[in-house]
Nucleic acid binder design. Structure first.
Length: 766
DNA sequence: CCAGTCACTTAGGAGCCCTAAG
DNA sequence: CTTAGGGCTCCTAAGTGACTGG
């Protein structure tokens, strides 16, 4: 970590303490700021300056990522071709328009009005929980509280009492607590000494409360604003930068940027052409004109002294004494306490990312055209603050101003800024454990469960549509089939040249699939090979139904490799269609649905009541893994994988030897006992028996561990666990098989899924 | 319909930190 | 006590999808 984002003051102090030593720099910065503002302005209107399309063949075959070579040429060609080609194809199959009136929505909360959805909805209410999907509209008067100012924050110190959910006592022991952090700090000092662990154990059961119906996300919001990145600390003069073999002094801004590069020197990013080119270009913008005229070739730059300096620094940090480390920890904790929480509607909630992203070099993933560009430092005047009108507004650091303070309760973010690489907006939002995130998450799974009820009908329909006489419908139905069956992502269009060339379902190109009428003993095999989100390769061969196959052949006719496979389809068309089939349905719901249903099925299949605890956990992980594979959640095999696998194997071998030794002894003890039949020998026998059992168990545990790890080599379970699997399935499974939930969810995860832990019983059905 | 904007979810990797084993 | 390695947290990029205004 940057470990250097020093002190809480970094938020506030740029004007006070820190300033003296930086006066000089500050001036220069300010001067630059002007230019910068202009540049930032430009962003808004499309930043055309970097339109370099360096034609490059990929050679890198780093693991399985980025290794599919389809992309670059595509970029060039794609541009012009599109329009007219499309038109040419237009008439291939007659298209007629059947536009239907759209469904209604109420501000973000989906109203179920489609007849289809209504009829298919016995609403699985476990009788008690208010569904997030259909808020009962009984509390129309909700909004009358709109302008109130909360006097108290509910923080419940309830540690025991796990279940009680049916008792309707949300009013229980809400400690009256001053909102003002003053008191909080005091409170804290008392406990902090020992373990800071005690904290206020928030046990607010928001899921037992009504939800707002008017599209507002909150009624009251107060926070202290973000924490800014620590200012640049000039390096000691003895750490030199060399150009063309000669030491060269750089002005502060240029030097700071140089340190960004130096810090990455060991990373292979810095060897990539695009990265270097982008870096040099942006770096030069920070230079004085002399520097600029001198430094023209990155190859002549030597950053190694700087790099060594940082390495030494981080080494020193590791070597720090316990005390020093503790001090840093405490400081971090203080910062967290001060800036890491906000008050939203009477409750203190954890903020997800309260630190502003520090400046640095942009690291895109895959073959990103903008890798190496300079991410500018974010200043208070770049930040928009969002909070309640009647809250205590966050203060900008002395001598600075926010860009804007607004009071928009239709959104959930507390602060935002525009980033300079893509011109996109970044937000500060709440932690996943917060009500606002939890509700949404819950709702997501409820939507997926509604899909479960009508997925049969939808499948019948899209299969029917394979026969449609309209091209667009055939394409739509085949794409939907892929999304359903293979859990592909929707595949929005992307701006070319702005990002890595990756695709999803709707944006698949001809070059991404291959058709094999026959392959081995299978017929109609489709081979997929493309880079998806994060440039993770998707590779899969799948036999499809004849009709699908024939359709694909049709779609491919007269197309170039870089043409769109589904030229009459995009995500917005697809989603519009889905919306008509089921209220709230979009392409990504299929991923959620298929992931969750797969987990549930797998857990049923793999169930084995006699299994030991570790075996059960293994089963769970396998079920989880099936989902991860479905969703193509990969990871780079850990660098130490082979070695650690070997170590484990050694352990297993040892254990095995131990076991056979123990068995021998047991045998001996047995015959001893047979011979003597005395108490002593019986005792020994028992002991040996126990020993064997114990070793057997240990061995089994190791073996399970080995299997699990081997199977996990390139699969990442976390993503699906966190984003796709209805946590209630897991909770129910744990209850059913007496597996402690801690085996499945760590602390953070339990916090995120608190709602599920609380409400799911062992008979929960997704 | 289309491009642009905005909000919010989903994603893998870096690196810190804890723990179990030596 | 030290060390290795694996888990967890943080970080922030990269998606999805709604909406807007022309």
């Amino acid at each position: 970590m940057s470990g250097d984002h020093g002190h809480g003051d970094s938020q506030v102090n740029s004007g006070s303490k820190g300033s003296d030593s930086h006066k000089h720099k500050d001036k220069e910065h300010r001067h630059k700021d002007h230019k910068r503002d202009k540049e930032r302005e430009k962003l808004k209107h499309g930043n055309s300056e970097h339109k370099d399309h360096s034609e490059k063949k990929h050679k890198d075959k780093e693991k399985l990522k980025h290794s599919n070579g389809s992309s670059d040429k595509h970029r060039e060609k794609h541009k012009e071709k599109d329009k007219d080609k499309e038109k040419r194809r237009e008439e291939k199959i007659k298209s007629s328009h059947v536009d239907k009136p759209k469904k209604e929505k109420e501000n973000g909360y989906v109203r179920d009005t489609s007849p289809a959805a209504i009829k298919s909805e016995p609403e699985e209410d476990n009788g008690f929980y208010p569904s997030p999907q259909h808020k009962t509209s009984k509390r129309e008067h909700d909004d009358e509280e709109f302008e109130y100012k909360p006097k108290q924050v509910k923080t419940e110190h309830d540690n025991k009492a796990k279940k009680r959910k049916h008792e309707y006592e949300e009013e229980e022991e809400e400690e009256e607590e001053d909102i003002k952090p003053k008191k909080k700090t005091k409170d804290k000092k008392v406990t902090e000494g020992k373990k800071a662990k005690k904290e206020e154990e928030e046990k607010w059961k928001w899921w037992e409360e009504e939800r707002s119906t008017d599209g507002s996300k909150w009624r009251f919001l107060e926070h202290k604003g973000p924490v800014f990145a620590a200012p640049y600390e000039p390096m000691p003069d003895k750490v030199k930068f060399y150009y063309d073999g000669k030491p060269m002094k750089l002005n502060a801004p240029a030097k700071e940027v140089a340190t960004f590069f130096a810090k990455m020197l060991d990373h292979e990013y810095t060897t990539k052409d695009i990265f270097r080119k982008n870096f040099l270009k942006d770096w030069r913008k920070e230079m004085t004109s002399e520097e600029k005229s001198k430094i023209t070739d990155l190859n002549k730059c030597k950053f190694s002294e700087m790099s060594e300096f940082f390495k030494a620094q981080s080494e020193a940090r590791k070597q720090m004494s316990k005390q020093e480390k503790l001090k840093i920890k405490e400081e971090n904790e203080r910062l967290l306490q001060e800036y890491g929480f906000c008050i939203m509607d009477n409750h203190k909630e954890r903020i997800g990312n309260f630190r502003i992203e520090p400046p640095g070099l942009f690291r895109g993933r895959g073959d990103h055209p903008k890798m190496g560009r300079l991410k500018l430092r974010i200043r208070p005047q770049d930040i928009i603050i969002n909070c309640s009108k009647d809250s205590k507004h966050p203060k900008p650091p002395p001598g600075t101003k926010w860009k804007e303070v607004r009071h928009d309760n239709k959104v959930t973010w507390l602060a935002s800024w525009t980033e300079n690489i893509q011109g996109s907006i970044k937000y500060i939002m709440l932690n996943p454990s917060s009500r606002i995130k939890g509700e949404k998450d819950w709702q997501k799974y409820e939507t997926a469960r509604r899909l479960k009820k009508c997925v049969g009908r939808l499948r019948t329909q899209y299969r029917d549509d394979w026969k449609s006489k309209e091209m667009r419908i055939r394409q739509r139905s085949v794409a939907l089939y892929f999304i359903d069956k293979l859990a592909l992502r929707a595949g929005n269009e992307k701006e070319e040249g702005e990002t890595a060339d990756t695709v999803g379902c709707c944006s698949l190109r001809v070059e991404h699939i291959k058709l094999y009428p026959k392959m081995d003993d299978q017929e109609y095999v489709v081979e997929f090979d493309f880079l998806g989100k994060d440039s993770i390769r998707y590779y899969n061969k799948m036999p499809v139904e004849k009709r699908v196959f024939k359709n694909l052949q049709l779609f491919l006719e007269n197309k170039q490799p870089e043409d769109d496979l589904f030229d009459r389809l995009n995500t917005s068309i697809l989603n519009k269609h889905l919306q008509e089939l089921m209220d709230g349905l979009t392409a990504k719901v299929f991923r959620t649905y298929n992931a969750s249903i797969t987990l549930q099925q797998q857990l049923k299949e793999l169930a084995c009541p006699e299994d030991s605890l570790p075996a059960k956990v293994l089963s769970y992980n396998r079920a989880n893994r099936a989902v991860a594979i479905l969703c193509n959640h990969q990871r780079a095999p850990p660098k130490t994988f082979e070695k650690s696998m070997q170590n484990l194997q050694t352990k297993i071998d040892e254990k095995q030897n131990q076991l056979s030794a123990a068995r021998k002894q047991l045998k001996a003890a047995k015959s001893d006992h047979k011979a003597s039949h005395d108490d002593k020998s019986r005792k020994i026998l028992e002991m040996k028996r126990k020993a064997v059992e114990r070793i057997e168990e240990q061995l089994m545990k190791l073996q399970v561990q080995a299997t699990d790890r081997e199977e996990n080599k390139q699969i990442s379970l976390g993503t699906s666990k966190l984003n796709y699997l209805d946590p209630r399935i897991s909770v129910a499974w744990c209850k059913k098989w007496d597996v402690p939930i801690e085996k499945i969810y760590n602390k953070t995860q339990r916090e995120k899924f608190a709602w599920a832990l609380d409400m799911a019983e062992k008979d929960y059905e997704f």
